[in-house]
Design a protein around this nucleic acid. Structure first.
Lengths: 146, 146
DNA sequence: GTCATATAGTTAGTTAAACAACTATTTCAA
DNA sequence: TTGAAATAGTTGTTTAACTAACTATATGAC
């Protein structure tokens, strides 16, 4: 076990510990403070549907890096909240297309503003160039493990 | 909502989606393949105890960026697996010191090798300089939100 | 055409995370 | 020295993640 490898272990600890929870947790708190009753996991699904409505569950798995059962349950809960509905595809009867409801579009601008505010706080003092490095490293990590 | 802010949203999506799950999930799979029956969350607690044995639960909260109930339950499960034990502090009776058992030290070299292997795979093609940028950005994010 | 295989999604069971409310102990100020 | 506030840890509840095993539909080789 070399010294260099231990340093990398600290990075791992940072990535999983800080990044995945600190920003998400802050966002979740702000939602709650403004009486917006969705989880950040639910929001992350809506986020991708706001970019493109009518994605299949499998496409949501790919977009959010979650597995099928996770998406099944997130869509279950979003359906209970009347934020999305499952629409069977006419081309392929195995597929559910997930479509946004009118209720959900109301949430969009509200929550995107809060998300942007949170990211501005989180990334204060970080340069665009540094963000690009992080994005490329994370993309590389994802590709390496795919 | 500016275009720049939307780009930052994609970074958020990357940080939470890719980094927190891809590396951890890979590590978890390798543990399972070698019949090592601990979760990555349990491993992350052991990791800090291997660096310094006898940390309090609060110190484990700080080290792993988890809240108290999460650490209570992780220590519960690690205790069931006979990997750690709670030892009441003599100086302050509110405090439990978490101490490694002989069983856990056996796991150390085995799992650290697997973790290093996983990180080498994940970070293949990433330069030390890029890793430093990521670490400093993540530290900044953590400080910004603290 | 038929059967094996692949793909889309669901269900069940265990572990973990977040929050709120709680107990026990310590600290510190009036 | 007593009583409020702070600190350490626990418990209950809901949501989510991962695995494994499952159903239903589609594809493709023969």
């Amino acid at each position: 076990m070399t010294n260099n490898q231990f340093k990398r272990g600290e990075l791992y600890s940072f990535i999983t510990g800080v990044a995945s929870t600190a920003i998400g947790r802050r966002l979740q708190k702000k939602f709650k403070q403004q009486d917006i009753d969705i989880t950040i996991e639910q929001w992350s699904v809506l986020y991708h549907l706001w970019k493109q409505d009518g994605l299949s569950q499998q496409e949501l798995c790919n977009a959010t890096f979650r597995d099928k059962p996770s998406i099944t349950r997130l869509v279950d809960n979003l359906e209970k909240l009347k934020l999305v509905k499952r629409v069977p595809s006419k081309e392929d009867r195995r597929i559910n297309l997930i479509q946004l409801t009118d209720t959900s579009t109301k949430l969009r601008d509200e929550t995107m503003d809060i998300a942007n505010e949170t990211l501005n706080e989180a990334l204060g003092g970080v340069t665009a160039q540094e963000i690009e490095v992080c994005k490329s490293v994370l993309q590389r990590v994802y590709d390496n493990l795919k």
